[in-house]
């Protein structure tokens, strides 16, 4: 093999189509839903779908930062619960309270992320364990705070983000505020991950932390930031969920694994180094589309759990297989 042949061959390999399969899967699922239920094609149908999917999509967009850095964040589900419960306790039915409660919740999320990140990168506790501990802690806190039986409701000003549809919007007629939040957060996190030095350093840290350290990357700072972003995304998801799911101590339960599943469906590599924000969000929509489809088919909630578990295993297995085929 001469050098010229080699470069030509490598160039050809590089030009292979690189569209993430998650988009095809999502398109197929949406087609299936539309066939099952024609109402889905009306704005009210797909807008409601997007509205319901928005919290998970935002959560997945945050989770993929931690996954790319080489870790997991299991604390996001209980952070959602804490956000919803805490907001209901603090607002105490006062509509004006929303404007200081939301910034306070975001600050609380930042602290949770900071603690997660420092425990992982300074104390060197594996992220799975560190965030599992945080998950249990936050669940307990939410329970303590509410006294076990959360009362009260969130004021309308708070529920605005998760529940309200803007009406008489040109083209689509209705437009959920949650969708706008999802697009806003998604755009911000996409730009941060894929258009800044931080995103490149994050991928490097997840891929080879030792090499990143030796290249002068501030590894701890990069990792801690990823956990803070994930926690902030959980608070935002909690604010949306509080809007349409109501107040309870299990509102966030199970969301941590759904977010990880979504990121993996989107092709993020567990153990780090590979993953994109748009694909993780598409993974979240895919997961929601599967749930919607199962719902239409009249299958109960336990079936959803079985399917979600199988998808997680299958997605990781398929990704590994594809990589092995590609010779890496």
């Amino acid at each position: 093999m001469s050098a010229a042949d080699g470069t030509a061959r490598e160039a050809r390999r590089f030009r292979l189509p690189a569209i993430n399969p998650v988009w095809f899967i999502l398109a197929a699922l949406i087609a299936a839903i539309a066939i099952e239920n024609a109402n889905f094609l009306a704005p009210i149908g797909y807008m409601n779908f997007l509205k319901r999917a928005a919290p998970l999509a935002i959560l997945a967009a945050g989770q993929v930062y931690v996954i790319v850095s080489g870790g997991f964040d299991l604390s996001v589900g209980s952070l959602i619960t804490l956000t919803v419960v805490g907001s209901s306790m603090l607002t105490n039915n006062d509509p004006a309270a929303t404007y200081w409660v939301i910034p306070l919740m975001l600050a609380m999320g930042a602290v949770v992320g900071l603690v997660n990140g420092l425990v992982v990168s300074v104390l060197r506790v594996p992220s799975l364990i560190a965030t599992l501990g945080m998950m249990i802690t936050l669940n307990g806190l939410a329970f303590l705070w509410s006294g076990g039986a959360p009362r009260g409701y969130l004021p309308e000003t708070f529920r605005f983000f998760g529940r309200v549809n803007l009406l008489d919007v040109p083209l689509v007629n209705i437009l959920p505020v949650a969708l706008l939040v999802m697009i806003g957060v998604g755009t911000l996190l996409t730009l941060l991950m894929h258009r800044t030095a931080y995103g490149k350093l994050l991928h490097a840290v997840g891929d080879n932390p030792r090499a990143a350290f030796l290249a002068g990357v501030p590894v701890a700072r990069v990792r801690v930031t990823a956990f803070v972003i994930s926690s902030l995304s959980a608070v935002v998801a909690g604010i949306l969920l509080g809007g349409f799911a109501g107040v309870s101590t299990d509102v966030g339960a199970g969301y941590e694994l759904q977010a990880i599943t979504a990121a993996v469906i989107g092709g993020a590599q567990l153990l780090g180094g590979r993953g994109t924000v748009p694909a993780a969000m598409a993974g979240a929509l895919t997961l929601n589309a599967i749930f919607t489809l199962l719902n239409f088919l009249g299958l109960p909630k336990p079936v959803r759990d079985v399917v979600q578990g199988l998808i997680l295993i299958a997605a990781v297995a398929l990704a590994t297989l594809r990589r092995r085929r590609a010779g890496r």
Binding site: R195, T196, A197, L201, A204, D207, N208, A212, L214, P218
Partner: peptide, 29 residues
């Protein structure tokens, strides 16, 4: 392999790693 390369990134990203690490986090790629 263990200490130098970031294998999943491009040739260019590998070459830019130290320069990026020395710069601001939010600067463009």
């Amino acid at each position: 392999k263990a200490e130098g390369l970031v294998l999943m990134q491009s040739v260019r990203d590998n070459a830019m790693l130290a320069a990026r690490a020395a710069g601001r986090m939010l600067s463009g790629i």
